[in-house]
Amino acid sequence: MFEARLIQGGLLKKLLESVKELVTDANFDCSESGIALQAMDNSHVALVSLLLRSEGFDPYRCDRGFSLGVNLNSLNKILKCAGNDDIITLRADDNSADSLSLSFENPNNDRIGEYELKLMDIDQEHLSIPETDYDATIIMPSAEFQRICRDLTVVSESVTIDVSKDTIKFTAEGELGSGNIKLKSTSSIDKPEESVNIELGQDVSLQFSLKYLMNFTKGTPLSEQVILCLSEKMPLLVEYKMDIGYIRYYLAPKIGD
């Protein structure tokens, strides 16, 4: 028996919005510790990994580990039927479950919507992502990162990210011209969520596809801050932390000439 009741149901709605562009079908791996999902996009250059810890639910019950194969588009459509303030409960029998039950309770507890989503068998490869000491780690406002990606898309389909001592620079060059945005590291004691923090082991310069980064910024509503982790010739990690877990996106760099 699997049951997970999320008081902040709106979070689940936002989460689905942040993965559905990248991945169509995925397994939700349920265990005692929580709900996890890992899936690559069709081209295998981008990956999304999310975790919702069991402590974030009230109650959370999962007797044994199993996977729920879900078409994310369908789940997203059903979640659109939930109000932003609704409490969302997910239920499934166990491994033999062929559907996922969802119930949406409004805050007054006088309207309850119940839905069933058909599940599917998804044979998905799972990559083991090693713990990495990145050359550069940047914590910055998520809305700023979203704006930079959106603005530079006007100029090019790729962006070069250069990180040096106290500056992160985003550069795009295209047929119409070029553009760049430099952010200096800042610290605001009053509003730490507005500061740009750069932790640097060594300088990094990497190029990425803006189309994918734009997709990753669908996670912006989940957190006021975004964490960018870069190492030479390694995939970029873009992370949005939430109270009850995280969503991480990985993107392979464009390398060589």
Binding site: V45, H126, S128, I129, Y250, A252, K254
Partner: peptide, 14 residues
Amino acid sequence: VKEQYSLEFYFNKP
């Protein structure tokens, strides 16, 4: 032309 390898290139399968 720059190349973009798939993520399997970086992350080993278990």
